[in-house]
Design a protein around this nucleic acid. Structure first.
Length: 607
RNA sequence: GGUUCCGUAGCUCAGUUGGAUAGAGCAACAGCCUUCUAAGCUGUGGGUCGAGCGUUCGAGUCGCUCCGGAAUCACCA
């Protein structure tokens, strides 16, 4: 198996118990149990015990009540497995208590583990290509892109932590009528403005002209409507629209001046995007441009047409017939031979497969394009590309404002740069109110506030199920208390503070073995969570779910904070226990740091 | 109309292969800083899991029907 498709992964403790139950059943009733009869889960907080065996399915084998079955298995386990110290039966549930000493040994093991929780990619590991971001070059990034970028980047880290080889990629929509619109507006009304002369960020400058184009177009359309046209006719027949189409034709024909302008304005946009990507902390290994891939797509379509996979209509347009798959006929080339969106994505996929021979290709694209990606995969399969079975559309919900959808044409968007700046500003203000900014240099202060502000934003977005639409209310700022990014970051900073103090005071001298300590209940709770981390990473990769990681980090931080509140670490008199707690604290810090890393959130040393 | 997704506390959300009395945070109220960072910790109140039927020893989770919301079904991208 090249990558994990199973969503159920067991911890070492669970496997131990599973094995024990199998043996117990074999010895007591003389039968083997199947996997689906072995249901083991964590014991709920309100009951005594660590792991719970659901005995209902086993009643079939024992031919007695679930209670009796659970009782007999419990007795056997307690007698024959040293790690099991106690058990109780409630209804059909067998709650098993793992000996406290086992948990100290567990902590010792996972503390010693190299790169705990993360798997290394090897030569034969699955190759996963992840496409995300995919901006248009006619406007700056907005909140929807932020969700996209954060999801994509986090997924790339999760997949690589689960042992896959990962290529992060981006397809830039750098051609088409929409690009010509901003170019045209700049030509007509720009007076030669550049990012340098105006001091504006390039993507914003270009975006302004896109909005200006739409505004002027609306004015022209309204006049034509007053003259008797329908709104649709007016929009298509307005002089500006005609000019934009002419410009597109010139671009496609390779007109030197047009191409020159296109290159120039795109370069402004790329400079702007680079700043936003850097602020967001996302990166790419390889960027594809639609202007490069659409030609490959067109050739591909023409080849398939010759092979007879596609149909050509009388007007010359080329279609694929997917009615057998309960979809419609879909256009692949216009009657004038030009490419559409689908053509370009076909080309991109083929180029990428040639480049990477991926096992899996994940597209992080909004759910508005579900149909598009269904068609894309089917079309490639129809063309004979078996690898298209590895295409996966990671479909996420829209980000909406309280008043409804964001509309970039009308400038009704939450701009990515503005939001990042606001989050940092809020973090700065909160830090000042809490009196946390003393004793920091200016640059330290800025950096910490930036980390916290972005941490709040990223966690806010990543903790929710990607499938769900989310509403963002700019009036209610994102929280910094409770189930938030800063809460987790704060826990980390606290841990670092303890660890530093331990080193300064000499309390921490080397790595002493603590496996003979008997942990208390709070400590066990934390160790249990730490113990879950590796299987969680694998599960998050299988489910493609950053939210799983986010919620785990929160739970771990909360559990640790309770321990931190109830017990002294460095003030503990018993040196053995102090060392043990220090070890627990250190491992928790490392796991939180890794969890945050998987989300693309920075872990501040102080805050 | 067809297809897909969503509906859990006033608000934002968890809820693992179906499992025990459905959990957090925010907001409200009441406590905890001479002690490792109070962005923390503790407690109180708040729910017919959109509605109904079915499968099951057991349903927020699976199936069907309905209600409400979103997306999509373009020679736009």
């Amino acid at each position: 198996m090249k990558y994990y498709l199973c969503s159920h992964n067991s911890t070492r403790m669970e496997n131990l118990l599973r094995k024990g139950v199998r043996e117990a059943v074999r010895e007591i009733w003389g039968t083997d149990v199947t996997d689906d009869m072995l249901q083991i889960q964590k014991t709920r907080k309100e009951f005594a015990g660590d792991l719970t065996l659901v005995a209902f399915p086993l009643a079939r084998v024992s031919h007695s009540s679930p209670e009796k079955t659970a009782g007999e298995i419990g007795r056997w386990l307690a007698a024959n497995i040293s790690a099991v110290s106690d058990y109780n039966v409630i209804k059909g549930f067998l709650n098993v208590t793992i000996a406290s000493s086992q948990w100290a040994k567990r902590l010792e093991n996972l503390s010693a583990a190299e790169n705990y929780g993360f798997l290394e990619a090897e030569y034969g590991s699955a190759m996963v290509v992840i496409e995300y971001s995919s901006p248009n070059t006619n406007k700056p990034l907005h909140l929807g892109h932020i969700r996209n970028n954060l999801l994509g980047f986090s997924l790339s880290r999760i997949c690589s932590a689960a042992g896959n080889r990962v290529i992060r990629t981006n397809i830039v929509n750098d051609r088409g009528i929409h690009i010509c619109k901003s170019m045209l507006a700049w030509q007509m009304f720009g007076n030669g403005e550049t990012p340098d002369t105006t001091g504006k960020k390039g993507d914003h400058l270009v975006g302004n002209y896109y909005v200006l184009f739409e505004q002027k177009l609306r004015e022209q359309s309204e006049q034509l409507v007053a003259g008797g046209m329908t709104p649709e006719e007016a929009r298509e027949n307005a002089p500006l629209m005609k000019k934009a189409r002419e410009l597109l034709l010139k671009w496609e024909a390779g007109d030197p001046d047009t191409v020159e302008l296109w290159k120039r304005m795109n370069s402004w946009v790329y400079e702007g995007f680079d700043v936003t990507y850097k602020d967001l902390g996302v990166e790419f290994d390889r960027i594809y441009y639609e202007s490069d891939t659409y030609k490959t797509g067109r050739e591909l379509v023409l080849q398939s047409l010759e092979k007879g996979d596609l149909v050509r209509r009388d007007d010359g347009s080329v279609w694929i017939d997917l009615t057998a798959d309960n979809l419609d006929q879909k256009l692949l080339l216009r009657s004038d031979g030009t490419a559409v969106y689908m053509t370009q994505d076909l080309g991109t996929a083929v180029l990428r497969y040639a480049d990477y021979h991926f096992d899996r290709h994940i597209y992080v694209v909004g759910n508005e394009q579900n149909y598009h990606f269904q068609v894309l995969a089917l079309t490639l399969l129809r063309m004979g590309y078996r690898w298209a079975e590895g295409l996966h559309h990671f479909s996420y919900g829209m980000v909406e404002l309280p008043e409804g959808k964001m509309k970039s044409r009308e400038g009704k968007v939450v701009d990515a740069d503005d939001l990042i700046e606001e989050m940092t500003a809020t973090a700065t203000e909160m830090s000042r109110e809490l009196g946390k900014l003393e004793g920091y240099s200016e640059s330290e202060r800025k950096n910490i506030c930036r980390q916290i502000g972005l941490g709040a934003l990223k966690y806010f977005i990543l903790k929710v199920d990607p499938k769900k639409n989310m509403t963002f209310n700019p009036a209610e700022s994102i929280d910094f208390n409770g189930n938030t990014g800063p809460f987790i970051q704060y826990t980390y900073a606290r841990i670092r503070s303890v660890m530093k103090k331990a080193e300064e005071t000499g309390a921490r001298q080397g790595d002493r073995d603590c496996s003979d300590v008997t942990p208390n209940l709070k400590e066990i709770s934390v160790i249990k969570l730490l113990n879950d981390f590796p299987s969680l990473v694998v599960e998050a990769a299988a489910e493609l779910s950053p939210a799983l990681i986010a919620n785990y980090c929160y739970e771990l931080a909360r559990e640790f904070n309770q321990f931190y509140h109830d017990y002294s670490i460095l003030g503990e008199e018993d040196k053995k226990i102090r060392d043990f707690r220090l070890k627990l604290t250190g491992v928790t810090g490392r796991v939180i740091e890794k969890g945050l890393w998987l989300l693309g959130i920075e872990a501040p040393e102080r805050m």
